[in-house]
């Protein structure tokens, strides 16, 4: 879906903090969505935790830096980190260039795939959430 200059593909799940999650077989791929990467500006650093890190839904597990703002990445589900995109270590701007492709950030093995239901999914839900956020950012 393309809305007010932001591209949010319909087949992905989304986290409130504007990270996308894609189901691949028995694991998930996660990255920053187009809204977040446009708001952030050039990404200069991504923390890439080692595989095996236990993740707790809603808890911080990494940091991301852009435009002199050091922010947090929160786990979308309970589970375990199975890999981080090492290409981002030397080229974090892949997130700006291709946030849904080469700029993917983490692969996660969820404890329970059903936790995906807690995320935002489907054109209507995504549209409502994105429009509300666009409005909030405009007014503040």
């Amino acid at each position: 879906m393309e809305l007010e200059g932001y591209n949010l593909p319909d087949d992905l799940y989304y986290q409130e903090g504007h990270f996308w999650i894609k189901k691949e077989d028995d694991y998930l791929v996660m990255g920053m969505d187009d809204f977040a990467q446009q708001m952030a500006g050039l990404v200069v650093y991504i923390q890439l935790p080692a595989e095996g890190k236990k993740l707790k839904a809603g808890k911080k597990f990494a940091k991301v830096e852009s435009g002199k703002w050091l922010g947090k990445v929160f786990a979308p589900v309970n589970g375990e980190l199975i890999s981080s995109n090492q290409d981002l270590e030397t080229k974090p701007t892949l997130i700006n260039e291709d946030c849904y492709g080469q700029g993917w950030m983490y692969k996660i093995k969820p404890d329970d795939m059903a936790e995906l239901d807690n995320l935002i999914k489907g054109p209507e839900a995504v549209k409502e959430w994105l429009l509300a956020d666009i409005e909030k950012y405009k007014t503040t």
Partner: peptide, 19 residues
């Protein structure tokens, strides 16, 4: 923008935000 304070194109404050 984004986060500089300048005087005649020269910076006069260094800033940053962390969560």
């Amino acid at each position: 923008p984004v986060n500089d304070v300048i005087v005649n194109a020269r910076k006069i404050s260094g800033t940053g935000v962390g969560e």
